[in-house]
Amino acid sequence: MSTSGKETVEQQAYLTRFLLDYTALPLAEGVFLRGVLPTRNAVRIVTGGADAVLAHELVAYEIPLSDEDDEAVTAPLVLGWTRALLAGPLPRTDATVMGMPLVLVDTAALEPASPVPADRALRVLRTLAWPFVESPPSPALCGFFFTGPDSMRLYLAVEKAGGLIAADVRTTGALTALLAALPSLVEEEERWATDTSDPHCARLIDLTNW
């Protein structure tokens, strides 16, 4: 993986870690985070209702990883831009990804929404409970996507795959055992498949029945 590729993975992993709370805490009234899809030089923030998983219930906003000065964008900025977009009508778009409307965000023309009290409280709690580390866990979680009431797709950086591996898992069953085995399972090339419907991964592993 190139230096720039490693930097992209680290930034996508950082953004994913920061935004996880908003799967349970609403971004706006009735709107939650339903996925962070990693793509080249950007992340796609997927929003929808609390339990939305169908494409017509979701909207993806593509936000670049760097600003007009080529500086890496911060997670609070991504959150602020997403909230600003949700405060207005859905921008017109003809683009789609995985069946969802895809909005390409011009961050230079968008003023981020101000933090809400819960954001500031989370900043304090994260800093104390989850201190900053230079390197993300391995394999780095660079994104996720809810695929059903008890299933999700995890986007993991596995160097020998030549890109991200998407692992489909269930959130029920022997979850502790699955999470312990996951770093080894994603390295097993005989499990790898290709999913042409998902442009965010190089390979796919189905662990829903593991």
Rank of each mutant, 00 (worst) to 15 (best):
Val9Gly: 01
Glu10Leu: 03
Glu10Val: 02
Gln11Phe: 09
Gln12Thr: 14
Ala13His: 10
Arg17Cys: 02
Phe18Ser: 04
Leu20Arg: 14
Asp21Cys: 02
Leu25Arg: 12
Leu33Ser: 02
Pro38Gly: 04
Arg40Ala: 10
Gly49Val: 06
Gly49Gln: 08
Val53Met: 05
Val53Trp: 00
His56Glu: 12
Ala60Cys: 04
Ala60Glu: 00
Asp67Met: 07
Asp67Ser: 04
Asp69Thr: 02
Asp69Phe: 11
Asp70Thr: 05
Gly80Val: 02
Pro91Ser: 11
Thr93Glu: 01
Met98Gln: 13
Met100Cys: 00
Val103Phe: 09
Val105Glu: 11
Ala109Ser: 15
Leu110Ala: 04
Pro112Phe: 08
Ala113Arg: 07
Val116Asn: 13
Asp119Lys: 05
Arg126Asn: 13
Thr127Arg: 15
Trp130Val: 06
Glu134Met: 11
Ser135His: 13
Pro136Thr: 05
Thr147Glu: 14
Gly148Ala: 05
Pro149Ser: 15
Pro149His: 06
Arg153Asp: 15
Tyr155Arg: 09
Leu156Phe: 09
Ala157Phe: 04
Ala157Cys: 11
Glu159Gln: 04
Ala161Val: 13
Ala161Asp: 15
Gly162Phe: 11
Gly163Phe: 07
Gly163Lys: 09
Ile165Pro: 04
Val169Phe: 11
Gly173Ile: 00
Ala174Gln: 15
Leu175Trp: 13
Ala180Asn: 09
Ser184Ile: 14
Glu188Pro: 01
Glu189Pro: 09
Trp192Ile: 10
Thr194Ile: 15
Ser197Lys: 12
Ser197Thr: 15
Arg203His: 14
Leu204Phe: 03
Leu207Gln: 03
